[in-house]
Amino acid sequence: MFLLMAASLTASLIFLAAYIWSVRSGQFDDKYTPSVRILFDDKKKSKKMEPESVSGSNEEEKE
């Protein structure tokens, strides 16, 4: 019985400590941006556009 109580209290104290750490380390400072950040892909999807089309446009522009 005492063992159980000690175990439950220890567990809850660990959670409290984790919570205090999370607040201290600033995890509650910004509650929006991380929710967006997780959706970004790490890999680069886009490739450079072909250089011809880039140079081609410059000619158009000079008109």
Partner: peptide, 8 residues
């Protein structure tokens, strides 16, 4: 304003 500035 016009189509002058473009890339492709």
């Amino acid at each position: 304003p016009d189509q002058k500035i473009s890339i492709g």
